[in-house]
Design a protein around this nucleic acid. Structure first.
Length: 447
RNA sequence: UCCUCGGUAGCUCAAUUGGCAGAGCAAUCGGCUGUUAACCGAUGGGUUGCAGGUUCGAGUCCUGCCCGAGGAGCCA
C-alpha cells in the first residue's frame, strides 16, 4: 500500500506529475480488457483513472476490474495531463498504481443515459450524485451565497422570521395547517409582516428561509416548499426598490457566471443570455404591459395563443402573459403599478389613482416568469385599518401589524425573490423541481 | 380542483385488425491497450399499475379505481 497525499479532483491540475490519492465513488467505467478506464467522482469533480494490467500487481488490476458503478473506493496514482481525459473539469487523468474498494455497490439503478422524470424523482437520493443535479446544486449554493453576501455588504441585517405562525398572512387555503398543542398554527408563506416590524429596529433587513404554499399548483414553476429571500427597507420608495433589485439580481447572475461557468457549460446553458444582465432593467407599467399583450395577440395567428393571452384589466398575469411580455426583452423586466384588487391588502395605492398600487414584479427572460414580487407598503394607520376591514380580514390577528403604524410609521418597501425560480433561470432548467435538492410538489413528498 | 396524455423486464421503449410478450441499455460470463452513454459474442431477467367484465383467445376492447406527467387557474 503506497501512502500518498489525499487531494481533491478539483485540485489535480496543481499536482501534475505527483502521486496522489483520491477518495470517492465510481461514476462510470469502460472495460477494454487489459485497460480499465474508471471515472471517479469525489464531490469536487470527476477524474478518469486509467488502470493497465501490465503496470499493476494482479490483485490491484482485478480489483479495478471488479468494481461496480457507484462503489466507494480510494485510488492512488500519478497525475498526468491528457487532452483525451474526460471528466469534470477534465484534461487530467490518474495512472492507477493502487486501488481499494471501500464498499462494492449493488446493481445501481441510474445509468448514464436517459431516464423518465418519475423514476429519477423516486431515486432523488441517488440522482443527486449525477452530474446535472450536482452542477445545479453548486450553482444554487453560489446563488444563495451571492444573495447573502450582497445584502450583508450593503447594510442589510439578516433577521430571522418564524416558520410556525399564528394567523393567516393572506389566504388560508394556501397555508399548511399545523396542530400546535391543540391550537391551529400555519407554516409561514412569507416573513414580510415580521420584516416590517424589524425595519423599525434595523432599517434595512432581510429574512431568508424555506416557505410553504399549500396551493394545488401543478406547473413547472411551482413547489409547495421553496426558499425565498425577503428584503424590507425603511424609507424606500418603489423607485428605490427597483434600483436596488436590479443591482441585487445582477450581482447574483454575475456570481454564477464567475464561479460556475464550467457547471453552466455542463448544463448546456447559453451563458450569453446571462451576460447581458446589467442595470438598468426595462420598466413598464401594468397598463403598458396590457397594451403590449394586445399587440402580441394581434401579431399571432395561433388561436390558442390568442385565447391564452386574453386578459381583462384588473386581473393578474398568468404564466402565458408573463412569458409573452418577458420575451420582448433581453433582460429581466419590471412591471409596476398592478391593479390594487389583484394584489395584497398592504400595498400602497398610487396617489390620485387608487385602483392601482405601488407594486412591482420582476419577470425573468426566457419564460422563467416572476422571480421577484414586491411593493411599497401602506404606512398610514387609517388607510391600513380601512383595507383590513373592507377585505374582511380578522382584525385581532393584525393588531400587532397595525401597531407598526402607530409607533413611528415610515414609508417602506420590500420584495421577495424565489431562489428556485432564480436558479432555474440561471441554469436554464426545464422545471423548477431540479433547482432544489429534494423537491416537494403537490404529488411528491418522497424521498 | 379542472383539461389532456401516460403506466409492458432494473431503465428507455416496441408489440399490425383482439392471435406465440420483444429490442437496446443495465446485470452476469467471455474477448479487446485509449475508451468518452465504447465495441463484439453469450446468459439470466415478465402477475403487461390494480380489480372486474366481454371473448375460443385481452398488453390491446369495456367499467371502476390507483399512480404519474404536461398544461390551466393561483402564485415566488
Amino acid at each position: 500500500m503506497v501512502s500518498a497525499p489525499i487531494v481533491q479532483v478539483s485540485d489535480l491540475a496543481s499536482h501534475e506529475g505527483e502521486t496522489v490519492t483520491v477518495r470517492g465513488w465510481l461514476y462510470n467505467r469502460t472495460d477494454k480488457g487489459k485497460l480499465q478506464f474508471l471515472l471517479v467522482r469525489d464531490g469536487t469533480g470527476i477524474v478518469q483513472c486509467v488502470a493497465f494490467k501490465g503496470d499493476l500487481p494482479e490483485d490491484v488490476f482485478d480489483a479495478a476490474r471488479a468494481i461496480t458503478q457507484e462503489s466507494s473506493l480510494t485510488v492512488t496514482g500519478t497525475v498526468r495531463a491528457d487532452k483525451r481525459a474526460p471528466g469534470f473539469p477534465g484534461g487530467y487523468e490518474i495512472g492507477v498504481t493502487d486501488l481499494q474498494i471501500i464498499q462494492k455497490a449493488e446493481e445501481y439503478p441510474i445509468q448514464p443515459k436517459e431516464h423518465g422524470i418519475d423514476f429519477l424523482l423516486d431515486h432523488r437520493h441517488l440522482w443527486v450524485r449525477s452530474s446535472r443535479p450536482w452542477a445545479v446544486m453548486r450553482v444554487r449554493a453560489t446563488v444563495i451565497k451571492a444573495i447573502r453576501d450582497w445584502l450583508d455588504d450593503h447594510g442589510y441585517l439578516l433577521v430571522d422570521t418564524p416558520i410556525i405562525t399564528p394567523s393567516a398572512g393572506e389566504e388560508t387555503t394556501s397555508l399548511f395547517k399545523v396542530d400546535y398543542f391543540g391550537d391551529t398554527a400555519y407554516l409561514a408563506q412569507t416573513g414580510q409582516l415580521y420584516n416590517e416590524a424589524n425595519i423599525a429596529s434595523f432599517g434595512k433587513v432581510y429574512c431568508f428561509g424555506p416557505t410553504f404554499r399549500a396551493e394545488l399548483s401543478k406547473t413547472r414553476r411551482h413547489l409547495t416548499e421553496f426558499w425565498m429571500v425577503e428584503p424590507e427597507m425603511a424609507f424606500f420608495s418603489l423607485e428605490d426598490l427597483m434600483d436596488m433589485e436590479e443591482e441585487f439580481v445582477t450581482a447574483i447572475v454575475k456570481a454564477a457566471l464567475e464561479r460556475n461557468r464550467p457547471e453552466l457549460e455542463l448544463l448546456g446553458r447559453d451563458v450569453s443570455r446571462l451576460e447581458v444582465v446589467e442595470p438598468p432593467f426595462p420598466r413598464i407599467s401594468y397598463d403598458e404591459a396590457l397594451e403590449m399583450l394586445a399587440e402580441i395577440r394581434e401579431q399571432t395567428d395561433d388561436p390558442e395563443q390568442k385565447r391564452l393571452l386574453e386578459l381583462e384589466w384588473g386581473k393578474d398575469f398568468g404564466s402565458p402573459h408573463e412569458t409573452a411580455i418577458a420575451s420582448r426583452f433581453e433582460k429581466p423586466v419590471f412591471v409596476y403599478h398592478y391593479p390594487t384588487e389583484a394584489k395584497a391588502f398592504y400595498m400602497q395605492p398610487v396617489d390620485g389613482r387608487p385602483e392601482v398600487c405601488r407594486s412591482v414584479d420582476l419577470l425573468a427572460p426566457e419564460g422563467y416568469g416572476e422571480i421577484t414580487g414586491g411593493s411599497e407598503r401602506i404606512y398610514d394607520i387609517a388607510l391600513l385599518e380601512e383595507r383590513v376591514a373592507s377585505l374582511g380580514l380578522p382584525r385581532e390577528a393584525y393588531e400587532w401589524y397595525l401597531d407598526l403604524r402607530r409607533f413611528g410609521s415610515v414609508p417602506h418597501a420590500g420584495f421577495g425573490l424565489g431562489v428556485e425560480r432564480t436558479v432555474a433561470w440561471i441554469c436554464g432548467l426545464e422545471h423548477i423541481r431540479e433547482a432544489i435538492p429534494y423537491p416537494r410538489t403537490i404529488k411528491r413528498v418522497y424521498p
